[in-house]
Simulated scan of single mutants.
Amino acid sequence: MLKIKILLISCLLLAAFYLPACDNKPEQKNTRKAVDYIRRIPGTDDSIPARVVQKGEVLIAYSDCYICHKEDQKSVGPAFKDIAERYPANKLYIEMLAQKVIRGGSGSWGYAVMDPHPKLSLKDAKTMVTYILSMKSK
């Protein structure tokens, strides 16, 4: 009789430890929606002269832009190609973005903060932004 009680208790203990270990929950799928990182702004693109693109490329090469930005991958700040995809390449946005480069800012691409560049002339900032916006994929 004692052997039966011990066997019964052993079986109950085994079941008590085994059943919680069985995970009978259905497989959960990722139901989170992807957030549009770029959030394109509608608008028309103006033509961009090749000489402005070349000058902008040189200005950026001699600046500190590549510390926080890369051409085609997100780094501390957004990739240049992502910026080009978001904003229309027209005078209004070139002016706005040039001002943002000079003044600095945050919030457009998450929590990253762009340091101000107060010594940069508005003309050079516009040329640099024009170069960045010329990277838009066609």
Score class of each variant (00 low, 15 high):
residue 58 V to R: 09
residue 99 Q to T: 11
residue 57 E to I: 00
residue 74 K to C: 09
residue 43 G to S: 05
residue 125 A to G: 03
residue 28 Q to K: 15
residue 68 C to I: 03
residue 97 L to H: 02
residue 113 V to K: 13
residue 33 K to H: 08
residue 93 Y to N: 05
residue 94 I to P: 00
residue 110 G to L: 09
residue 44 T to D: 13
residue 96 M to C: 05
residue 73 Q to L: 11
residue 58 V to Q: 13
residue 51 R to D: 15
residue 71 E to Q: 11
residue 39 R to V: 11
residue 29 K to G: 04
residue 91 K to W: 03
residue 62 Y to F: 06
residue 119 K to W: 04
residue 105 G to T: 08
residue 41 I to H: 03
residue 51 R to G: 09
residue 35 V to R: 11
residue 33 K to D: 03
residue 67 I to E: 06
residue 130 T to G: 01
residue 52 V to A: 05
residue 81 K to A: 11
residue 111 Y to G: 13
residue 102 I to V: 13
residue 122 L to G: 06
residue 93 Y to M: 03
residue 37 Y to Q: 13
residue 132 I to G: 03
residue 122 L to T: 08
residue 119 K to D: 14
residue 95 E to C: 05
residue 121 S to D: 08
residue 41 I to N: 04
residue 23 D to P: 00
residue 110 G to E: 11
residue 64 D to H: 02
residue 28 Q to R: 14
residue 64 D to M: 04
residue 77 G to H: 04
residue 90 N to I: 06
residue 42 P to R: 02
residue 25 K to M: 08
residue 51 R to C: 09
residue 44 T to E: 15
residue 104 G to R: 10
residue 23 D to N: 15
residue 89 A to H: 00
residue 49 P to H: 11
residue 51 R to E: 15
residue 105 G to A: 09
residue 28 Q to Y: 11
residue 114 M to W: 07
residue 34 A to V: 14
residue 46 D to Q: 14
residue 118 P to L: 09
residue 81 K to E: 13
residue 66 Y to G: 01
residue 27 E to K: 06
residue 40 R to S: 08
residue 68 C to V: 04
residue 116 P to W: 10
residue 43 G to I: 07
residue 93 Y to P: 01
residue 46 D to K: 05
residue 38 I to S: 03
residue 76 V to E: 13
residue 53 V to I: 15
residue 136 K to F: 06
residue 107 G to S: 09
residue 30 N to R: 08
residue 67 I to H: 03
residue 63 S to W: 00
residue 76 V to C: 06
residue 92 L to E: 12
residue 119 K to A: 13
residue 89 A to S: 08
residue 35 V to I: 15
residue 69 H to K: 06
residue 52 V to K: 00
residue 126 K to P: 03
residue 124 D to N: 13
residue 36 D to T: 07
residue 134 S to I: 04
residue 133 L to D: 00
residue 64 D to F: 01
residue 109 W to L: 07
